[in-house]
Amino acid sequence: MPRATNGPTRNKARKRILKQAKGYYGSRSKHRKLAKQQVIRSGVFAYRDRRTFKRDMRSLWITRITAACKMRGTRYSAFMNGLKLSGVLLNRKMLSQIAIEEPAAFDQLVEIAMKASQATPSKSS
């Protein structure tokens, strides 16, 4: 009876790991052990970064809205407060896109926001 080993299975497992490790730096894309470690690690980063991605994007939109507001002589916080008071429900992603693609529309948004914040007295007074 021929001796049965798990050679084919081992080769398959190794190939599966190396396929996932394509493009990794140095021997991390070539050696079974290092590739396996890096694939696990990369998965951890990917899981974490799918979550931080959402925060990162939100902070990018805020940075862009801030820049657009400063150009028009107002502040981010005053602008957002004005929008809230006037009942504009656009989110930050859309606002930042409007600032880039439709500067004229953003001018009007600033106008609406400023009007609303002047009409409503601030809470502190």
Binding site: L60, T63, R64, I65, T66, A67, A68, K70, M71, S96, A99, I100
Partner: peptide, 9 residues
């Protein structure tokens, strides 16, 4: 470039 709305990190 943080003074422009096109800012990209």
């Amino acid at each position: 470039g943080k003074h422009r709305p096109e800012y990209t990190p």
